[in-house]
Write a protein that binds this DNA or RNA. Structure first.
Lengths: 120, 120
DNA sequence: CCGTTATATGAATGATTGTTCATATATTCA
DNA sequence: TGAATATATGAACAATCATTCATATAACGG
C-alpha cells in the first residue's frame, strides 16, 4: 500500500538548505517504476545476458537455470517496461535489449557498487 | 520467493549469438538490491529532494507530505544502502546524498524516460 | 529532574510480487 | 489434420514490503 497523505505533521520548519527545480511527481513515479523493474535478480540477469546479443527464451532459461515460464513472465515485464524487444522467427522468439539506455543504467549501478566496494 | 532452480527444462539449444564476460552473480545480486532501493516513489522523492542539499527529517516529511515515521523508515533503508548520510546537530539530523553516484543513477533513469516519451 | 522537540524503531497490516503448475496459443513438419 | 516444439498466460501461494500506530531514545531548555 502507498498513501501519499497522513495526519502526522506539525508546523513549518527551516532546516536545511534550499530549493531547486525538480522533476514533477509523475516523472518521479515513472522513475520509481523503472527502477522497480531493474530491482530483481532474475531480470537483471536477463538484461545482462542480452548485452551479448539477442537470445531466445529457452536459451535464456537454460543460461539462468530457471523454468521457461518464470523467464517468460519476467520477459513480459521487461517488454512492457520497454527494456527488451521481441523478434519472432518461426516458432522461436528472440529477445534483445530495446536501446542503449538499458546498458547505461546497468553501468551506472555497477559503478556505484564497485566504488562502494573499493571504499571499504 | 526466489528459487534459482526448477524441474522444467529440456535439451540444448543454439539460438542467439554469443558469449561475453559478465559480472558474476553476487555482483548482479547487489545490483538488483541497489535498484530495489530506487524502486519506490517515496525513496526517489527523498533522494531528489536531497539533490538540492541536506535536509532534516521533519522538513523532508513536510515536503513530501508524509508522516515522520514513514520518512524515517525509508531513510533507514537509504542509509543502509549507502545512498544517504546523516549528520547530527543537536536534536536534529540532517540527511545528504552519500556520493555523486546517486545523482548519476537518477540521471541515467531520467534520460531513459525522457527518451521513451519523445519516441511516442 | 521534567517537559518538549526531533528522530528511530518494533509490531501489525494490507498490498504487491516472483515462482510454480497447468494450460493456452502459435508455428512447423509429417 | 495431428503431433511436436516454442512461448505466453491465468490462478494460487509464499514472501517481501511500505505505511501506520504506539512507543522508545536522544538532546535541549527551564
Amino acid at each position: 500500500m502507498k498513501k501519499v497523505n497522513e495526519s502526522e505533521k506539525k508546523s513549518a520548519h527551516i532546516c536545511g538548505s534550499a530549493e531547486k527545480a525538480q522533476p514533477d511527481i509523475d516523472v518521479l513515479g515513472e522513475l520509481a517504476e523503472l527502477y522497480k523493474v531493474f530491482g530483481d535478480l532474475t531480470r537483471v540477469r536477463i538484461l545482462t545476458a542480452l548485452t551479448s546479443g539477442e537470445m531466445c527464451v529457452i536459451h535464456l532459461a537454460e543460461k539462468l537455470d530457471m523454468g521457461q515460464s518464470a523467464v517468460s513472465h519476467q520477459l513480459r515485464i521487461l517488454r512492457s517496461a520497454g527494456l527488451v524487444r521481441p523478434r519472432r522467427e518461426g516458432r522461436t522468439v528472440y529477445y534483445a535489449l530495446d536501446d542503449e539506455h538499458v546498458d547505461m543504467i546497468l553501468e551506472a549501478g555497477l559503478e556505484h557498487i564497485i566504488h562502494k566496494r573499493s571504499g571499504k
